[in-house]
């Protein structure tokens, strides 16, 4: 097991937003969390990254307990987070954004090679490399956010609604990108409101409601589940 969450409880003030979440992610798999607005999907990812503190429970990554480490240590262990809403650095250039993703890396020549790979994967970013990131379109910004996370050379990628607010054509491109990342052996924990997309990409899925896991199973099974169809696939 690459990532293991056990009985996570998280609250913002008096409000409990995660109530006993347990999850497992195997190496080289894509696992998805689907759920409605406010279900606690982002909070789950944010607790893995060390952006929010647990009230109780534990998180293990690669056999090591990480839930009391600061965010920068968690990055250095190999977890990169593509946050909800992209959160690129608007007044830095595309290239600076990407290089910031490699902040902790010491292997300079490898970083250069990585940067080249990412420019090959996202040619649009190469064309815009010295433009400020805020001048990019939504889809390009999403690619930049993904590229920035990949620059850390992560073992695992946390992705929070990468398809949010994007046109269908672009969503399709994002899908291909995620597939390619998976082929490169990076484990992915994908949060999506677009359940169709998520269940097609994932090996395994969790359904989150009100801070609790109400359903879990192999993605194809959930895709055919009547409950899921009605609530999330709009069929």
């Amino acid at each position: 097991m690459l990532l293991e969450l056990k009985d996570l409880i998280v609250s913002y003030g008096p409000v409990q937003v995660l109530r006993n979440i347990s999850m497992q992610v195997r190496k080289a798999q894509v696992v998805t969390i689907i759920g409605a607005n406010g279900a606690g999907k982002s909070t789950t990812l944010r607790s893995i990254s060390g952006l929010v503190n647990l009230k109780s429970g534990s998180i293990h990554f690669d056999g090591q307990r990480i839930n009391d480490l600061p965010a920068n240590k968690i990055v250095s262990m190999g977890i990169s987070h593509v946050p909800e809403g992209r959160r690129i650095f608007p007044d830095m250039t595309v290239e600076e954004n990407l290089r910031t993703g490699a902040f902790l890396r010491k292997d300079k020549t490898e970083v250069e090679k990585n940067l080249k790979d990412i420019f090959n994967q996202f040619p649009i970013l190469r064309n815009r490399r010295s433009k400020n990131a805020k001048t990019l379109s939504g889809g390009e910004q999403q690619m930049l956010a993904i590229g920035r996370a990949l620059m850390a050379k992560p073992k695992m990628l946390l992705m929070d609604e990468p398809s949010m607010g994007l046109a269908p054509v672009i969503v399709d491109e994002i899908r291909k990108i995620i597939e390619q990342i998976r082929e490169n052996g990076v484990t992915i924990l994908l949060v999506e409101q677009n359940a169709e997309l998520a269940l097609n990409l994932a090996n395994y899925a969790y359904v989150l409601e009100n801070g609790q896991i109400v359903l879990e199973g192999p993605a194809e099974e959930l895709h055919d589940n009547e409950q899921v169809k009605a609530a999330y696939l709009g069929i």
Binding site: G50, N72, V75, S80, P83, F89, D91, T100
Partner: peptide, 18 residues
């Protein structure tokens, strides 16, 4: 860069290991 990134979005900067 770390300073600029932090000034623009502290949380996103933390996610880069800063």
């Amino acid at each position: 860069w770390a300073l600029r990134a932090s000034a623009q979005d502290p949380e996103a900067a933390m996610l880069q290991g800063i």
